[in-house]
Nucleic acid binder design. Structure first.
Lengths: 194, 194
DNA sequence: GCCATACTGGACGTCGCGTCCCGTTATCGG
DNA sequence: CCGATAACGGGACGCGACGTCCAGTATGGC
């Protein structure tokens, strides 16, 4: 029981230390030696808990806060989406979390374990939350019955990630508004094709 | 002149070798030693041309082919976009190029040089090409005068990258069609909000 | 034919991951 | 309260790879 408690304390300490160091020097320069040293812990103690640096880092970043990215429900679907997207942009696309989140996704590109864990522990819950909110809106008649909820989610998220990961353009409130307007007001061409 | 020619030959050889090796073992396991050995070249010769492994890799991937992702102009903007997006998905989201492109973007997340070069040499030209085609369509009256071309590009690209980099869901022809339909037919809700 | 330049090949320093081990410390059962 | 058991700290270690350096060698210009 107490052995278990002591273990938990160390687990917590190691994650917090890893996170602190990552915030200071970035993931690239984060070393297990440094984490062990600052946490006052042997490297074995870390490797007994995490199989690799990448997964420790993932745990450190994802456990650090319960995101605060849950969807409000004010009754206005657009306002609610706007709110969550703004919070997400603030949180994930700027220091101090932005670079860490970017590194995490970067790591996921060549580390299937990280990719899988990132999806399960962050992306999927977040997706499910948004879809649930959209579903409610549809049931309340705020959205057309054939409104494609899954696609809508990807149309809102995709461009944000595109800017974060590829072009590195800033994700402003104005941009979020443009996205929402395009999605909900439609961008249909004049002589309606197709 | 011949010294110059010899240099050019080596540059070419090194890039091709790097690309071959990357295709075989992936970027993570690609080593400069292996490239030098297989190319029959001293490591100095490589480092005289590229400052780091990451930039050699980027050069190798980007120079390998002139993408074949230029926009056709059949007069039908939707058909043309559909064509290019399909080609891009085939080329960039599946073996053999998919993993390399993913690794490249992964590397860009913590290497500003790679990020900048990737943007300049691939993303921006590709963006400009798409925007040019969209502009023509608008001038021909296929798109509304206030159609937001830049945003449209990001709405089409973002979700593809989102699937490639984050959720790893397949990018099917059907998905591309859904995206195009959403963008051009609009996804306006029933009781039109905002 | 000679000189400058680029080249090969290999040794080297450095770093950091992940493993191993040993002496120590904390916890739990009795 | 005490001894057995397990976890721990700290450090050494092997390993692989980046990037530098240094001979000795080949190649092309003049």
């Amino acid at each position: 029981m107490n052995a278990r408690r002591r273990s938990d304390d160390r687990t917590e300490t190691i994650m917090r230390t890893a996170l602190d160091l990552a915030l200071e020097v970035g993931y690239a320069k984060l070393s297990m030696e440094a984490v062990a040293a600052r946490a006052g812990v042997g490297k074995d103690t870390i490797y007994r808990r995490w199989p690799s640096k990448a997964l420790l880092f993932l745990d450190a970043v994802l456990s650090s806060r319960n995101t605060g990215l849950e969807h409000p429900d004010t009754g206005d679907i657009v306002a609610d989406l706007r709110e969550v997207m703004s919070r997400a942009a603030d949180l994930l696309a700027r220091p101090p979390w932005g670079p860490l989140y970017q590194d995490l996704i970067g790591e996921a590109q060549h580390n299937p374990d990280v990719a899988a864990a990132l999806n399960q522990r962050f992306i999927q819950p977040q997706t499910a939350d948004t879809l649930a909110r959209l579903k409610v809106a549809k049931e309340q008649g705020q959205l057309a019955p054939d409104f494609d909820l899954d696609l809508a989610f990807e149309i809102l998220s995709g461009p944000l990630y595109f800017r974060l990961l590829i072009t590195q353009q800033p994700i402003t409130q104005a941009y979020i508004d443009r996205l929402l307007r395009a999605l909900f007001a439609g961008m249909a061409p004049e002589p309606h094709p197709r």
